[in-house]
Design a protein around this nucleic acid. Structure first.
Lengths: 119, 119
DNA sequence: CCGTATCCCCGTAGATACTG
DNA sequence: CAGTATCTACGGGGATACGG
């Protein structure tokens, strides 16, 4: 008997979370914020290729999910810092595993691709 | 000093692998195949919501990356089985971690969303 | 500095039909 | 059964401009 919900069912709520995780910018931002709090434009500079819109959008999503916390400091002009939550940190740890895997096995993957393409 | 490549650089090859991983169907198919070999239409039935096209396309990508193996059996009509490779299995293990996380923390995430939306 | 609003485009997934 | 081919649309994401 299987106690786990069926993630292969499109209606399964767990798949909603999974779909959120399966996002380019989400993974990059979360692992970056796991290293420490950052300001908005700081993130923009650090994550190469992200647009203003996607940064804002992704951060809002992360905040909504309780993975990231947004703090506004009343300076002039205003400054905003984003920091990871305890919950977010547990997810970031899992994602780090994927990043590590990618770094460790990228050679094997590229080699497989070459073999595949060569025919 | 940091020996790891900078995944935040869009030119970093590791990010290519990461982008492939950050795919809805890839994660679902890989974890499913980790449980055992499956036929094409079997996968189609098991993974709710996937189209013929995306299934074919995703499987081809997984095969190209050396994560999944495709075997054609000369029956009539022809039958094709897909099985995970040792390399693929190591990745599937990491992804399982994400699925487990999602199942464990979905309650917290949904609660956070409610709180966020309530203002 | 930190966003939101708007426009627009092009890739990507869905639907459908057809082959070995 | 296991795909490929073609067509279409739809919406995610980039560029740009503007507001708090």
């Amino acid at each position: 008997m299987d106690l786990t919900p069926n993630v292969y069912d499109p209606a399964c709520p767990t798949r909603l979370v999974l779909d959120r995780i399966a996002d380019k910018w989400t993974t990059l931002l979360l692992t970056l914020l796991a290293k420490g709090p950052r300001r908005f434009n700081e993130l923009r500079r650090l994550v190469g290729g992200i647009s203003q819109k996607m940064l804002s959008q992704t951060l809002k999503g992360l905040e909504r999910d309780g993975l990231v916390e947004r703090e506004v400091l009343p300076t002039t002009p205003v400054s905003v810092t984003y920091s990871i939550t305890p919950l977010g940190l547990t997810l970031a740890t899992e994602i780090e595993g994927l990043t590590t895997w990618a770094q460790r096995h990228i050679g094997a993957v590229l080699a497989a691709q070459s073999r595949f393409d060569a025919r």
